[in-house]
């Protein structure tokens, strides 16, 4: 994680501040993820709720959970969910992927997006 810290320190623009494990407050990140939890499970092997399971999503190819009927728009998005990509998406998902079925206005605050990404990273094999 040192590389992330270094990257954070080097960046001046707030949207480029990427979450590191060191700054990941477990309670805050879980609270931030409560905005997502009604529609997404995050435990390994968890069920598909309204949206796909998000275990190990960081670093995963977009629209890649087998059997989930992604919108044609997200099927065509074809990106890797890097932390930076998740930051961009979570701020305004419906603007970033017009036509997505995910009815979510977005997390306006960098700190909320950081917290959610922290939580996703913790729920991972990596």
């Amino acid at each position: 994680m040192k590389s992330f810290k270094l990257l954070s320190a080097m960046c001046f623009l707030p949207f480029l501040v990427i979450a590191s494990d060191d700054v990941c407050d477990q309670q805050a990140s879980k609270k931030a993820f409560s905005k997502c939890a009604a529609c997404h499970s995050v435990n390994e092997g968890g069920p598909t709720l309204l949206g796909p399971n998000l275990f190990d999503v960081v670093g995963r190819k977009s629209a890649s959970v087998k059997g989930f009927p992604y919108s044609p728009a997200l099927n065509e998005y074809n990106k890797i969910w890097t932390e930076q990509e998740l930051h961009t998406f979570l701020e305004k998902p419906m603007k970033v992927v017009p036509g997505t079925m995910m009815a979510f206005g977005g997390l306006r605050k960098v700190s909320d997006r950081n917290a959610v990404i922290c939580f996703l990273k913790k729920n991972s094999n990596k």
Partner: peptide
């Protein structure tokens, strides 16, 4: 502690 509201207005 936590809150959740689903925004039906932006659901296409």
């Amino acid at each position: 502690l936590e809150s959740f509201g689903y925004d039906w207005n932006i659901d296409p």
